[in-house]
Every structure is written in C-alpha cells, then in structure tokens.
Amino acid sequence: MKKYAYYPGCSLESLAKGYHLSAMAVTKEFGLELNEIKDWNCCGSTAYFPVDELLAYTLVSRNLALAEKMGASDFVAPCSACYKNAYFTNSYLQSDTDLADHINYALEEDQLHVDGSLKVRHLIELFIEDVKLEEVEKKATHPLKGLRVAPYYGCQLVRPRKAKEDVENPRYFENLLSAIGAEPIEYANKTRCCGGSLIITNRKAALSMVQILLQDAVIHGADVIATTCPMCDVNLEVYQEQVNREFGTHYSVPVMYFTQLMGLALGIDPGRLGVGKSELASLQAKAVAQPAESQ
C-alpha cells in the first residue's frame, strides 16, 4: 500500500466535505493510503501572496516541513489552489537556497526544517500515474455508461506547466472519465479560469466567467461537470442561480468532484461519497447517481 502525506486544505473540512469523503473512499479502494498531515495550516490561498511573498512561502513551507517530518515522499493536495501553492513553494525551495535559509530560520521557532525534498502532487495525478488507467477500468464495476461529463480542469491544475504536459489541451482527465465508462465531452474552455476568488471582489466579472464555462459545457451536451477543485466547484455550482438572474439564462447542470464520479463507478454507496448529503445542489447530483444505484 503506497503512503501519501495528505493535505486536505480548509475547504474539504466544510464546504467540500463530499470531496474529502469521496477522496478517502476511492483511494482506499485502490490501496492508496492518504495520511492526513497533523496540525496543518492555511495554504496561503490567493490572498496572502501579493501581501507578503516571503511570509506566504513560509506558511506553505510549514505544511511541507510537517509532511517531510512524517517521512512521506509525496505531498498530495486535492484542491488545485493548495496544490499550486505547494508545488511552486517546493520547487523554489529546491532552486533558491537563500529563500530556503530564510524560511528555515523562521521554521526553527516551531522546531521544524524543510528540505524541499517532497514530490508535490494533485490528487488526480495519483489515479493517472500511480494507479494507472487500466486498473481504474478494471475496478469500475458500475461504469457510468452514457453519462456525458465535462472534464473541467480549471486553470491552476495545469499552471505548474510541467515538462511534456500539454497545458493548453491536456487529455488525462478525459482519459480518466473514459476509464470509468463515462463519455467525456470536448469543449474549448476546459482550462479557463472559473473566476476564483474574484467572486468576492468583483462579482459581476466572476459571474461572466462562470457563464462562459456553463455555456460552453451545456452547448456541448454535458450532463454533469466534473471538477478537481473546491473553488471551481463552488463557483460553477452555487453561482448558477446568480448567473441565471444576471444573464437571463436557465442553467441547471450538476457539478461533481471527479472522485464522486469515480466512487459511483466503483459501486460505492453515494452516501459514503457525500453525494446528496452536504452537497449544495444535492437533488441534481442524486439524479446523476441513479444509474450507478440501478445497476
């Protein structure tokens, strides 16, 4: 059983409880052990970096240091923003010894030390790279036949621009959806920003960005939008009503975490995946879950 240092981030404790539940349930099925980092703190989000970069890197580094202390080799974040912050901080620690010295000086207060020796990964990478899609396909005993899913990468998941990754037109999410029997739809805006935290500071601009995504997904026939990030999920799901009011549209498309769709395909009880429990658009989501239950 491969072990990972798991960094849930704040959203998964409340707003995105379903993401947390489904992530735990699905990884367990594949024999991946997610060990939550004890006493983790904020990832810095979007807000802290423009205020003070050094302090923000230090904040992130504390989480990395805690994970290193656990003896883990991989740091896994399910939230794209947490992932991106941890990924960049970790790579800066590796390349900038001066920065690492400054940060370690601060971490001494907490009897911690960071090397930057971890591999920082997003949860979805585990299924693509470690589990492999053939294995996913084998385990998907309740394939989501005929379900047209819009794979929504969002912007931060591909932002590290890792070598050989096609950041403008990535394909791995589609491949994962195919492996669980669903039908991934093609649409151009799959890596476009969901508006992020702009929803707080400039609601109208953010709603317009959400509208573009909903429009594109719906025109291309999405039954459901699959996300990899709690922020994207909230913007696309919770703000549908406001988008409809603002633009006179009638969107009503369920939005689910990719782990929830995977869980349904594995035949896990929707309740254990947080589907229709603490989710906000629970009714729609439940409808999506039906095919799995009926099989």
């Binding site: 649409y187 151009a188 805006n189 573009i212 429009q215 594109d216 025109i219």
Partner: peptide, 14 residues
C-alpha cells in the same frame, strides 16, 4: 489594424 497579441482562436461561440 488591431494592436495586441492574440490570446486565443476558438470556434466556441458566445
């Protein structure tokens, strides 16, 4: 003449 770097070319209509 439009002065600016093209960001994207798409067939997705709005």
């Amino acid at each position: 003449f439009v002065r600016g770097k093209v960001a994207e070319i798409t067939d997705t209509a709005r």
